[in-house]
Simulated scan of single mutants.
Amino acid sequence: MEGKEAVDEGAMIQGQADILQYMFHFADSMALKCAVELRIADIIHSHGCPITLSQIASGIDSPSPDISCLARVMRLLVRKKIFVASPQSDGGDTLYGLTHSSRWLLQDAEMSLAPMLLMENHPWFLAPWHCLSRCVKEGGIAFEKAHGRQIWDFASINPEFNKIFNDAMECTAKFTMRAIISGYKEGFGCVGSLVDVGGGTGGVMAEIVNANPHIKGINFDLPHVVVTAPEYPGVCHIGGDMFKDIPKADAVFMKWIMHDWGDEDCVKILKNCRKAIPEKSGKVIIVELVLQPDGEGMFDNTGLVFDLVMIAHSSGGKERTELQWKKVLEEGGFPRYKILKIPALQSIIEAYPE
C-alpha cells in the first residue's frame, strides 16, 4: 500500500504541475505579444548579431524603459526557446539572439506571424473565448455572445477591427501560398483556367498565375470585395455569391473558405463547384486543415486548437478530420479525392466529380 500511495501522490503532484502549466499558458502568449509590440526581434535583427539587454532597451520606443521588467520577460521567452541567451565567459553582459522561432516575430520580414499574433491576443478576439462554456450549454455563436453581432458584421462597422483582421489574414496567406506554390507545382500544370472562390482582392490568384503563366485566373468574391481589387496580369475579377453560382473554369481553388461554414453550407458550395467545372476533367483544389486527433506531427496539436478557434471566431465553422471531409465531399458530388501534404498547417485536398 505504501508503494501505491507514493505512486498516487507522485501522479497527483504531476497532475497539479500540469494544470498549473496549462492554466498559465496565456502568459506565454502575452509575453510573445509584448515582444512583438516592443519590436524586440526587429531590434536584435537590426544589429545583425546578439545584443545586450541595454541595447535592446535603447531600441524600444520609450524614454525610460524598465530594464528589470524587460529582463524578466526575456527570461521566460529564452526558457521557451523563442530567443537565445549567451552568458559571456569574461563576465560581460549576457547577449540575446534570435532563433528560428523569433524570426517569425519580425514585423519587417516578408514571412511573419506578428500580425496574426497581435490579432489573436487582442481583447476583441479574446472575449469570445470566455463564452465557450455558454456555447456548450446553449449552442450559438461565441463571437456574437461576446460582441452582440457576428464577426463579419462586427468587421463591417469597425474599421480598426477590420484592419487587424485583414493584416492577420494577409500575413498567413503569404507563407501558406509559398508552401502551395512549391508543394503543388504539378497540380497546376494541367489547369487552363482556375477560379479562386472567396479570393478576396485577388492576391492569391495573382501569385498562382505569376508562378503558372499558362493559367487564366478568375478571382471570385462578393461584389463589394472585388470592386476594390487591383488589376493583376492574367487575372480577372468577378463579383457574385458562391451559394448561388460560381464562374466556370477547369478547376476551382478554395483556401481556408470551407472551415468557416457548417456541413450543410459546405455541401451547397461544393454542388456549385461541380456545376462550374468539366464533368470528366475538372477538379476542386481545397486548402484546409485535415485534423489528426491522435497525430504526432508538428502541426497536429495546433490543428485541434484551430478547431476551437472556429468556435470562438467563426459563424458555425469547424476544422475536419479526413472522415468528415469524405462525408462532405461525397454529399457535395465529389466521390473521389486525395490528400496531399505540403509544408504548412494545411493540406491540399484534390476532389474529383467522378
Rank of each mutant, 00 (worst) to 15 (best):
I141S: 13
G332D: 06
A229V: 02
A276P: 01
K326I: 02
C69S: 05
T99F: 01
A41R: 11
D221E: 00
F125L: 10
L340N: 08
Y184N: 08
F334K: 01
V225E: 11
N158M: 06
L329I: 03
L76Q: 07
F154P: 00
K341V: 05
I151E: 02
R72M: 14
D18G: 01
P115L: 05
H214T: 12
I67M: 06
I342C: 11
V197G: 02
V252C: 03
G10E: 13
V227A: 04
M116V: 01
D18C: 07
P159S: 13
M116G: 09
G189W: 02
I348G: 00
L117W: 14
H237F: 07
F220W: 10
G234N: 05
E186P: 08
R178Q: 13
I269Q: 00
D93L: 05
E331W: 02
I13L: 10
A31M: 14
I286N: 11
C135K: 14
I60M: 14
I60K: 07
S62K: 05
S101C: 09
I238C: 14
S281D: 10
G139H: 06
Q292N: 14
A229K: 00
K326S: 06
P63N: 03
A251V: 01
K4M: 10
Y337C: 06
W124H: 10
I141P: 05
R178D: 13
M30D: 12
R79Q: 11
W152F: 14
L113C: 08
Q16N: 08
V287L: 08
G217A: 13
L222F: 11
L329R: 04
T302S: 12
